[in-house]
Nucleic acid binder design. Structure first.
Lengths: 350, 350
DNA sequence: TTGTATGCGTTATCAA
DNA sequence: TTGATAACGCATACAA
């Protein structure tokens, strides 16, 4: 087992005091070049690494960032969080930070976990995911002056903190524009009930694109809970009433259901008396297009075109905002926001 | 902002020395009941929490467990790891441990990250996932006396450490037995090329079940790389040559491909000249059954019957083995192993 | 059963 | 430009 090498070991080795070693690490400009190089050589040679616990005792900063890992409600959230976490861990390392995990079942319990984490580990910051309306966590943290960044906008609340988010509306708009460009004229939308920031945002993108193209969206959208069965039902309903030639969905689950509905319809075939004319009916290329959201493994597996979020990039920006918050003069900088553009990943379905 | 409350604050408040407070926390039996209660009351009242950094300085233990978060090669691994991580975090908390994340692109880089982590944070232990043949990480850690547990058997290597794994063979055997019980006689298997511990193990389960039932497995299995397209090809091939009535697959990706192949075949329908007899052809209930492995969101979404791993349980057992390793007398206990049974989650496809 | 003294490795203050 | 000293909060050996 290798001997424990501390700042004292390095100091002896380089024939300087411990303080000089510390200065080389934390305030190199104070040290004469020659000395600095001698110390650096000793550090390399001995494989010295600063002990975080001791450093923390002195500075009160742990270089630890806490993130909640959620009990995967569904596979999609689990997958997204996993990618985001990976990005976060990867982006944090070069900045000298590590990611520590915690769990919580609800906001209430989460704030009490904050207390615990903060007191025990003196965490430097939090990254909050899954922000939602009436999110009590943000005010709790802000109220205590704990640095944090959210991945997700402060839906409906005044912005008092830095955040990073993906522009869902831009995503569904791009999807819709793409369909319009392909010749589709009646493009439906299957989303969630109004009230969830994320859901409303994604619907808005579709709506805006349709309006810009001067197409009437009336009767072309449905709001259901997330799920494959729900998506299928909504699609069946839409197909029977509004006769869309393409469907944009707020999630891959809904899109998968829609795909199933489209398939069912395709399998049952046109009824004998139906006219073979191109409109109303399937789109320009002869079939009903479906586009999902999130580009999850499910989409990849079934060949579903889907709007993919730049999760690694989002994570990197979170770390960027955080380090700015942590390393710069506190109080001076205003909270910053980053809105990232998602992009359509084209596959078979649209 | 709340004042920093240390052991000294509590001591003053409870009118005892700091040492007595420390004893109440670490060796309660040494303290008179009355005093103990008084101290405990003060702790609660002040909301005291031991500072981990200071404790670590003294004890050399951080109560931190490191786990690698991988760049999701595919959605399935990402999902599994996410669930496992959640289980780990949840099981670790009551034991007084926290999970810290790190990334690494290959084994080589990973061991150098160990060095870093170990020296900087004095990690208590590692949990290794994705063990494989010629895994250099285990000997590295074992060689330095770092406590660790693997989620995954030490494939092909002598066992020198505690591990937890899921009995893949039991899973595919259960799937196969289920199909046999349903009346299937010709049950195929689509897996990966020989050599990967996990893949061979899953194939063995199918093989064993068939042999126990005195059925000939000859010509009924295919080995391909993981993927939907690969699974579809293999299934098509199998269907055309060996005429199985059911397919057990080593992954949900393969199973999804198989499902597609089965559907294609169903859609194209029996050729005019085909006999409608029950054998050879679809199984007892008139269709070709498919069973996947891992019970991923993909399986849930498309109604695929699949073998599900008890990931939360596996994580809990990892923590259990780890705490035993960490909290008990070192050297005395032999490495322990836990093999968990997965179970078939029944859906539409089989 | 309780209290006193010491040191873990680091950085900040200050003096040289 | 460098070095001596103190202090962060805790747990341990030892004394009372």
């Amino acid at each position: 087992m290798p001997e424990k090498v501390t700042i004292a070991t390095v100091a002896t080795h380089a024939q300087v005091s411990r303080q000089t070693v510390s200065n080389v690490l934390n305030a190199p400009h104070l040290v004469r070049q020659e000395t600095r190089e001698r110390v650096r050589a000793a550090i390399d040679e001995l494989g010295y690494r600063a002990n975080q616990a001791a450093r923390q005792m002195r500075t009160g900063r742990s270089r630890l960032i806490a993130v909640r890992i959620e009990p995967a409600r569904d596979g999609i959230n689990g997958w997204i969080l996993d990618r985001f976490l990976h990005g976060l861990t990867e982006a944090a390392a070069p900045a000298g930070y590590r990611v520590i995990l915690y769990t919580a079942t609800d906001d209430e319990q989460e704030t009490s976990t904050y207390d615990d984490l903060l007191a025990s580990y003196e965490l430097d910051a939090f990254v909050l995911t899954s922000t939602h309306r009436d999110d009590r966590r943000t005010e709790w943290l802000a109220g205590r002056g704990v640095p944090f960044v959210t991945f997700g906008r402060p839906w409906g609340a005044p912005t008092i903190h830095p955040w990073v988010d993906v522009d869902g509306a831009a995503g569904t708009a791009e999807a819709t524009d793409r369909l319009l460009a392909a010749g589709h004229r009646r493009i439906g939308f299957i989303g969630w009930p109004a009230g969830s920031g994320v859901g409303d945002n994604r619907r808005d993108g579709w709506l805006g694109a349709l309006r810009r193209a001067a197409h009437d969206p009336t009767g072309l959208d449905r709001a259901v809970l997330d799920g494959v069965a729900e998506g299928e039902q909504a699609a069946l309903d839409l197909l029977a009433t509004a006769r869309p030639t393409a469907l944009v969905c707020a999630s891959d689950s809904l899109a998968l259901g829609a795909l199933r509905a489209v398939g069912t319809r395709a399998q049952s075939g046109p009824s004998p008396g139906a006219s073979p004319g191109p409109s109303p009916g399937p789109g320009p290329d002869g079939r009903i297009a479906v586009i999902g959201f999130d580009d999850t493994p499910v989409a990849q597996a079934v060949g579903l075109t889907s709007v993919g979020q730049p999760l690694a990039q989002a994570a990197a920006r979170c770390i960027e905002l955080l380090t700015r918050l942590l390393d710069d003069v506190p109080g001076a900088a205003a909270p910053e926001h980053v809105l990232l553009r998602p992009h359509v990943v084209i596959r078979d379905s649209g």
